[in-house]
Write a protein that binds this DNA or RNA. Sequence first.
RNA 1: GCGGCUGUAGCUCAGCUGGUAGUAGCGCCAGAUUGUGGUUCUGGAUGUCACGGGUUCGAACCCCGUCAGCCGCCCCA
Length: 416
Amino acid sequence: MKIPTEMIRAVKGTRDLLPPDTAVWNRVETIAREVFRTYNYHEIRTPILEETQLFARGVGTETDIVSKEMYTFDDHGNSLTLRPENTASVIRAYIEHRLDQKPGVQKLYYMGPMFRRERPQKGRYRQFFQIGAEAIGSDSPFTDAEVIEMVCELLTRTGLSGFHLLINSVGCPDCRPQFVETLREALKPVAASLCGDCQRRAETNPLRVLDCKIAEDQPVIDALPSILDNLCGVCAPHFAAVQTFLNDRGIEFEVKPRLVRGLDYYMRTTFEVTHGNLGSQNSVLGGGRYDGLAESLGSNVHSPGIGFSIGEDRLVMTVDQGEAEALDVFLAPLGDAALRHAGSLARELRQAGFSVEVLAGGKLKRAMELANKLGARYALILGDDEIAAGEYSLKNMKSGEQRRAARADLAAALVD
RNA sequence: GCGGCUGUAGCUCAGCUGGUAGUAGCGCCAGAUUGUGGUUCUGGAUGUCACGGGUUCGAACCCCGUCAGCCGCCCCA
C-alpha cells in the first residue's frame, strides 16, 4: 500500500523501534540494570523537560550543545528545553532533594531519551537514548576506577567485544587555564601550517586543536605540549591513582592526552569508549568527573561527582541482532465450541507463565502454517475428537512429533 | 549549519542513448492436501517509479525545487 504524502510520519531524526529489535533494547537494558544493582546503583527518573537555564549553566553556554543543538521553546514566558543530556538534571535533583544529607556516596543510574537538534546520521538521532550513571559525593580516584570498571563490565555483558577504552585528565580550574595559555603560546608559531578549522580553534578554543583528525596536522599536534605534563599537585596524583586502580582490576586502557570533551563541566578524569564498526560516530560512551557542577548550579554544598552515559542507539547497533521472543504455544481450535474451550485453556496456560496465541478461526492447515511462521514451540489442536476425549493433540513444531496430552499434564509437557 | 550520494512492489533490487514498469529474488495470499506446518509445485494480489514543477510528441530516466535516508564536515552518546 502506498503511503500518501499527507500522511503524518515520524519527525526528522526520530524513529520507531519495532519488534524484534525492541527485544535487543530490552536485553541491553536488563543487563544494565543487573550490573548497576551489583554496584549498588539505584535508578533515578528526572523530567524530560527542564528550565533552559539548567543546561546553560551546567553544560556551558559556549558548547555546541547549548549554543545550537537544543530543543528550546517558550512556555508562557518561561524558557524550557528538552534535555540534551541527563547529568545536569541528576545534579539538579540531587541538590533539590538534599541527597547530600543521605549517608554515603549517592550512586544513581538512568536510562531514557535525550534530544539534540543535530543533522541526523547513522547512530545520531535527534531523539536518542542514553543509559548512564553518576556517583556523587566522592572525589576519590577509587570511585573513578570503580565507575570505569562498571561500564566495562556492562559493555562486556551485553556481548560487545573489541571496544577500546581511552582515558585522560583534563585538569582542574587550578591548572587548566594555565595549560590553555601554554598551548596558545605554543600554537602561535605553528598555527599557520594547520588546517583552517585548527587555525580558528587556536584562537577560540586551543584544546580543540588536540582533537583534530586531519592527518597532515598530526605531526605538529603531536609536538604540542601535553596536558599530562602540566597537571597541578592535586590532579597529577589523582590521575596516577586512577591508573593504578584500573591496573589492579585488570582493565585495559589507553591514556590519550589529546582526549578532550565537549562539555564544560568535566575536570580531572575523562574517558571514552570507541568501537570500530560505528563509522564516524565511533564513540559508544563518554564520561568524566565534574566536581564543580553542583556549585555552578547554585549549590553551596561541594558535591564532587563522576559519571558516564552510553549511547544506547549505538550500543544496540554493535550488539548481535535479536530474534523475536519465542512463542510457547499456538492453540488451534476447530469450531465454535472449541474456540470457547480454547479461551479458558489459554487463560490457564498464561497464568502458568506460557506465552499463548489463539487462532480465532480458520482451517487447521492455516493454523499450522501460522504456528510455524510465528515460531511456536508447540501447536495444540482442539477438535471435536480432543474435547470428547478430554485430551488435546500436542505437536512439537520442531521435531514434528505429535501426541495426546490431558489438560492436567499440559504444563509439564510444555516445559520440555 | 555546510558538502557529496541515493529515493522503482511489504523488503532487496533490475530497468540500455528519454519510447510509457519486472514470468526478478524474498515475503504475503490461495490451491494441490474437507483435521496437520516446515520441502516442493501451481496460481494470485500489491506500484500516482518519494513529492511538486519544468523541458519534450513522449520522462522512472534530463533540469529545478522540496522532503526523506545514507555518507562525510562540525560536534558529540
